[in-house]
Design a protein around this nucleic acid. Sequence first.
DNA 1: CAATCGTGGTC
DNA 2: TGACCAAGATT
Length: 346
Amino acid sequence: MRDALSDSLIDWYDAHARQMPWRVRPADRAAGVRPDPYHVWLSEVMLQQTTVAAVRAYFLRFLERWPRVEDLAAAEDGDVMGEWAGLGYYARARNLLKCARAVVAEHGGRFPTTREALLGLPGVGPYTASAIAAIAFDEPATVVDGNVERVMARLHAVETPLPTAKPELTKLAEDLTPNHRPGDYAQAVMDLGATICTPKRPACGICPWMEGCTARARGIQAELPRKIPKQKKPTRFGIAYLARRADGAWLLERRPDRGLLGGMLGWPGAEWGAEAVEAPPLEAEWNDPGAEVRHTFTHFHLRMALRVAEVGPDAQPRSGSFVAANDFRPSDLPTVMRKAYNLVTG
DNA sequence: CAATCGTGGTC
DNA sequence: TGACCAAGATT
């Protein structure tokens, strides 16, 4: 039974696998082409909680700029954070650099080849370790992401809500994992979840697992997996200060490595909270452009007022430092900060 | 271990 | 417009 299910899914994948820049097509894989572990790792980290559509361009840009893990390990922190800007979850970028440097310094520039060893790398957790082990090194490791959780919950009609059901769903996924072509199988389950066994209105009519699916038989597939309802997001308020010198330099600060937007460039200002707090980074005639930045983070909404000033050549900021126009790329800013920039200059 | 951590697309 | 969702990891 187990092999019948995995075989039918592999057959479906051979015919329907989506092409992605980091993926070796099943036909090429069968012909002996092996994916580059660096590519697999980079793509899997980028794909954490992030859509394929959003990752594609970032993956290609990173690979063009840093073709090998040694190149990435030698990169400047600020360059990597700037290249990651806009993709979100910036701890991933900090861990990406730590991981690249660990692979070069501690593993001779070769990624560890087992799930167990991969788990020791920064930013590589249970999912990513399994994905790299299976896809790059043919280890029959089980990947459990949101797709797999949904597919397993439906296939076996698990009604326990997430995240409580996670261990049970993991066990069910492990029992299905074949020893043959584990990398293609892992990608096949995720493709199935992404294209057919979708969160809403799953396309059961064309699903290779339709006949084995308990939730489908009971007509409850669209209700699974159940989830514990999330809390409503509170709203926080803040003020961003955009100071520009006559030579075109902007006053920016590098945010501390921990916490929200850690390691990223941003406009100076007090911490965001229940009320907006005025905290100009230097003495100047601050103007209020009127417009406000609205942005939603993972667990709160932000409404950010703006202050703009033209400052003299000798201005001495209390925080941050002026970045020359030639060294400033708006694309280096995280999205919330770029919204402020666009409003002021736009 | 529950909370933290981004963003863009979709319905 | 707002809630949900996406190939999770860390503390």
